[in-house]
Design a protein around this nucleic acid. Structure first.
Lengths: 347, 347
DNA sequence: ATACATAATGTGTTCGAACACACTTAATAA
DNA sequence: TTATTAAGTGTGTTCGAACACATTATGTAT
């Protein structure tokens, strides 16, 4: 398993390295005889170009922009900073620069504005959380026209100009929650699917989870749960959810489709006589605290840190080593309880 | 954030690149005046050597050996092949070769023999599953004397000559199982901890899981489960476990500390009147099949593929880019049910 | 002052791929 | 026949770090 260089091949084929180079890169200007000689050698050996040398010769700096919601407004995005740093440290000595731009997740205007700013920086690629469908589609088109690669994470939206998606299968995520819920609640009891989010843009993602959740229970032959959906928003102090619990004293579980699971855990404290199991999303500090106290039973980990790290590293390796970018990278969907959350925080 | 090269630094400091090189590598033969000038420049800028150039100049081939139990004998190790391939493909163009050596997990002699063979190959590093404590310790010492790096995965054993461990916290893994078991079994019922393994060397690892499992239940204030330990081996058709279930009609759960969980699921089919929850280990085909049928409730994923991949890639990046090797890398401990196993198989 | 050692410094080459450029050959037109 | 073009081929340089080697300064002994 010797390592062959272009020089080796040239010698074996009895031509110069220039000719070998032209054959390999199909630059033409090669006689049939020479082409044949080189191809014969190439067929015999397994030529693997030295990526270090290639990359050194190229010696370009690549500029990536990460575009995500402001973690101060939605703490779900907090771990992303660590993911970006990890990618930054890994690739900074290889000619990759990464900078972060955050936008207000409550404002489509801000989203567009930040995108315009990023576009004007003319980076080589953008990694974006496409929170708002219409605005994201528009921005992505603009990037494509400027020949800027676009990867998206967390929320899958369709577009021909997207090179790469990293995230989870939300429908399946709902099914996982349903299976867990089935295991810890009494048969045929009543379960609430709670959508807690002031951000309307999350609607479609919450619904995918709900669909998966309902799908699981609909296909259960051995039991007959009652599922109720409840939309509830903070500005209303989540009154709809409170009323739903209050009116029916038969609720055994609540599936919270967003990271605001801790709000539900807190609310349930008002009903000490009820035994309500709670399954929700994301390793926010407050969620973990309720997980530890037993108020929350399971969390599903959407792993924003890993999402952004994988998205960035795919882009970096594409530029540096020509590695193909996978169109879609689905992360594992992690089930979290009070005993294993710690093993994920240190990842 | 300009990229500085040695030539840049030389120019800024008013010396030659040779002098800068001597300062950076502390090779001596530099006058105090020159040293000062160069250090001043180095303090001002953030010099990051170009790893591509460094690695190209080095242009060494590094040889890694992976040493693991034969997957045909213990299917737990089956996914490792994919992990090795992944690392191989990632690093083959960068001058890393990896070859795999398997040993019979029932034979300490074979383990020693394979280790001797690997030693005679004189690789740069060995990634080993140290199945047998004494024999592994001995082999590791031999590698260290030959100045061969040693990483271990899956089973942590202590030794000064080990550079790196990748695996899981088995005690915590037992606690996770316990928490799950608590959630799906009635209070104060009887639970069996089943050690199913013909390989005596696994004893200590099974015991760590048992300790964690018991630790969780011992610290429970609100309930009082009865835990029984049961060692059972195949050559005896797992009769001890059968008798344990048969004698007490009050068993609500079995925690299987090995990947042979499917054996227990199969056995429980003989007791259709009992409702016994089963929690065990590893994504073997047979285990997944019982997970789908509902006979197994949870599996804990020990992720052998990821373990071996991470171990190998740490070694590769150490040789190629001088990245420090972390002494210990603890993987997340994944909880698997019938709905999320698929998201792990595609990782 | 000259010879000679040693310290200090600078220059040149290498790694492999990529590509610019110079050169050779053959073919065609004037 | 000579000039001209195009096709084909080979040579040389670059990327940045590492290090061998050549060269220059500085000192000490004779």
């Amino acid at each position: 398993m010797k390592k062959h260089t272009i020089k080796d091949i040239a010698q074996l084929a009895g031509v110069s390295k220039g000719t070998v180079d032209r054959v390999i890169h199909k630059r033409g200007k090669v006689s049939e005889k020479a082409l044949e000689k080189v191809n014969k050698v190439l067929a015999e050996i397994d030529y693997q170009p030295n990526l270090m040398a290639r990359s050194l010769k190229n010696n370009k700096d690549y500029h990536l922009c990460a575009l995500l919601p402001n973690p101060d407004i939605d703490p779900y995005w907090l771990p992303c900073k660590a993911g970006i740093n990890q990618a930054f440290n890994e690739y900074k000595s290889l000619g990759i620069t990464i900078d972060t731009h955050t936008f207000d997740p409550t404002s489509t205007e801000d989203f567009l504005e930040v995108n315009a700013r990023v576009l004007s920086l003319n980076p080589d690629a953008v990694l974006m959380v496409p929170l708002f469908f219409n605005e994201a589609t528009k921005s992505i088109k603009a990037y494509a026209e400027a020949e800027i690669l676009v990867s998206i994470i967390n929320n899958r939206i369709g577009s021909e100009d997207i090179n790469n998606f990293v995230g989870q299968d939300l429908f399946q995520s709902g099914r996982i929650a349903a299976r867990l819920m089935e295991m810890i609640t009494p048969k045929d009891s009543e379960i609430i699917i709670a959508h807690l989010d002031e951000f309307f843009h999350n609607a479609s993602f919450m619904q995918q989870k709900e669909k998966g959740f309902r799908d699981y229970f609909e296909n259960l032959l051995t039991s007959n749960y009652t599922l109720k959906t409840c939309n509830s928003i903070e500005s209303n102090k989540y009154k709809t959810l409170f009323d739903a619990i209050d009116s029916s004293k038969n609720i055994s579980g609540i599936f919270v489709t967003t990271s605001k699971t801790y709000k539900v855990a807190k609310m349930v404290e008002n009903f000490p006589n009820l035994s309500i199991k709670i399954i929700g999303y994301d390793l926010l500090e407050k969620n973990i605290s309720y997980l530890n106290s037993g108020a929350i039973d399971f969390l599903i980990h959407q792993n924003p840190k890993q999402q952004i790290y994988l998205g960035l590293s795919q882009l970096a390796e594409y530029f540096l080593f020509d590695k193909p970018i996978s169109e879609e990278k689905l992360l594992s969907i992690d089930i979290i309880n009070s005993e294993n959350y710690n093993s994920y925080l240190n990842q």
